[in-house]
């Protein structure tokens, strides 16, 4: 699936009454290569060399260039914002970075992201989505929880 912006995002916010605990969100695959990391470094102003300079990354003991944890966190939550229908409805979002996403020069890496509704509060119409993100067979995010306010 493309991760480039389009103009065809949902126009309305998902209704709380249409959501149940246990619902699965549509999964996405985020492809990340070196060019993408340079793009994210520029956008985020996080220019740490471990995210784009392979000899430097290896010199400091990493297997290769690794993705910014914040790139993984930021791209994973698009699963939630697309499902909710408004990126402004995410009121809380937290993750642990359990394993780096290694980004080889030739192939890049694929991050598989899925999500499950873990909790739904009828009083506040807030739902908690647990995200799972894996790359190269390993979980790269832990305790990844996003809370969104629905209509």
């Amino acid at each position: 699936m493309s991760t480039q912006p389009t103009t065809s995002a949902p126009a309305t916010v998902r209704a709380f009454s249409d959501v149940s605990v246990g619902d699965a969100l549509p999964s996405i695959t985020v492809h990340v290569d070196r060019a993408r990391l340079v793009q994210y470094a520029g956008a985020s102003l996080d220019r740490n060399r471990i995210h784009w300079d392979e000899p430097f990354a290896k010199k400091v003991g990493l297997p290769d260039v690794i993705a910014h944890g914040m790139f993984t966190m930021g791209s994973a939550v698009t699963l939630v914002t697309d499902w909710v229908g408004d990126a402004g409805r995410v009121v809380e979002y937290g993750v642990r970075f359990t394993k780096p996403v290694v980004v080889p020069y030739e192939t890049g890496a694929d991050i598989e992201v899925s999500g499950i509704v873990k909790a739904a509060d009828p009083e506040t119409k807030r739902v908690t989505v647990e995200l799972t993100a894996t790359a190269d067979g390993s979980k790269v995010l832990g305790r990844a929880l996003a809370v969104a306010r629905l209509d």
């Binding site: 065809s8 995002a9 985020v30 994210y40 930021g74 698009t78 408004d86 990126a87």
Partner: peptide, 21 residues
């Protein structure tokens, strides 16, 4: 900067780029 960041993380919600939306 919002547009640049949204493009970098692949967030396609037009609310990042279209003030009318």
């Amino acid at each position: 900067k919002i547009r640049e960041f949204a493009e970098a993380v692949g967030s396609s919600d037009p609310v990042h780029v279209d003030a009318e939306v």
